[in-house]
Nucleic acid binder design. Structure first.
Lengths: 213, 213
DNA sequence: TAGATTGTTAATCGATTAACAATC
DNA sequence: TAGATTGTTAATCGATTAACAATC
């Protein structure tokens, strides 16, 4: 499990580079220097060069970076050249919203199955995928080469479901449940705690208001 | 606009403290030491004490922290004792999912209005709130004391809509559009870039797979 | 070639952890 | 009072920024 020593702070910035480079590419920009990119993204040129050099030298002295090439390379670093199949656990509003989001497919994430405890939702279709009962989950994971699970269920059941997912070979969990999962460290978990995010916004909003009236 | 010098890293951790304390409170736990809490949350006791002491001394030597009191105090720091009205711009799947999420009300965030460009969606109801056309937005914001806008529209229109929101007195934007907004610095923006989050998961998943086969 | 800009080392800054005196 | 645990200062660690030699 040899840690490659690249900090999560760096990883977190890669998708943003990827996004800006994608836009530059679409605009037909061929090359860009770290300085130009830094002005666009409002970060330091130093940081861009340091971040990229964690993964290799993608630029050329005196020239800068080739936009198309760098875009492709960051995509590879992020693993977007690979295909992963994912399932969504929880067919509520949020689960259905994510299931309907077609852009994930463009990045290699294939929506393959959806599950819910609530039998009223079973049979419902989301983008051509039929919601199945929880009992079918184990078998489905194994037979369909699923390695990512998206958890959009209430926090009460989330920890137990996460354990079941792991036992059946899930390698990564995108967790929208408002609870910290308890899984082995070789399982990748990415938390999206929406209410935490809203509370942070709330803090900043109230602090600003306090200071200004 | 005097900066109070509390880092966003600290702010980001507050909702998690709040969540754990809420659970302890519900379990009837009366007091807890930074050491016990640190074991529960898998952080250092030092960090907990440092974080809290940015806002004042909430504990007592030899005793620890009173759970109920600390919970309340963190809630106040986060501004959860105040009420804020928010609107959702974009009545697509994600917008509707957020509109249907009732827990925000419990924290003082009141879902007050919803808007969409698509006239097919106008008139639709989400939790008792009728979707209105974009033209009604300006007036609605002013007449209903709205200070938070949730942006769940495609990135193409997001930057322009954000500017309109700001012109009409919105103080904070919870941005789900996959683009960086360009608003004055006194406007609070909290980004939730879902695909960035998924790409980070992808990186970690692929790195782990690379290292293990 | 001269100019530009990278890759990388060194300096700085900030955040986390450790230690301990204060005190309940 | 003695023991426990905070609040806070000092030490360490890591991340960011600056500087510059290498090189296209």
């Amino acid at each position: 499990m040899e840690e490659r020593g690249i900090s999560q702070a760096v990883i977190q910035r890669l998708p943003r580079y990827f996004r800006y480079l994608g836009e530059l590419k679409d605009e037909g920009v061929e090359r860009i220097s770290s300085k130009e990119l830094s002005e666009l993204m409002k970060v330091t040129a130093s940081q861009i060069r340091q971040d990229l050099n964690n993964f290799g030298g993608f630029g050329q002295q005196g020239y800068g970076y080739n936009v198309e090439y760098l875009y492709q390379e960051i995509g590879k670093i992020l693993g977007l050249d690979k295909t992963h199949h994912f399932i969504i656990i929880g067919a509520g509003n949020l689960g259905r919203a994510l299931g309907n989001y077609i852009n994930f497919e463009r990045r290699g994430f294939i929506f393959s199955g959806m599950f819910d405890q609530n039998l009223d939702l079973v049979g419902m279709e989301v983008r051509g995928i039929k919601v199945q009962p929880m009992e079918s989950m184990e078998r489905f994971i194994k037979e369909n080469d699923i390695d990512i699970a998206v958890l959009t269920i209430p926090k009460a059941g989330a920890v137990a479901v996460a354990e079941r997912l792991v036992q059946n070979g899930i390698k990564a969990i995108w967790n929208f449940a408002h609870v910290d999962l308890n899984v082995p460290e070789n399982i990748q978990v990415e938390n999206v705690h929406l209410s935490d995010s809203l509370m942070k916004l709330s803090y900043n909003l109230n602090r600003y208001m306090r200071e200004n009236e």
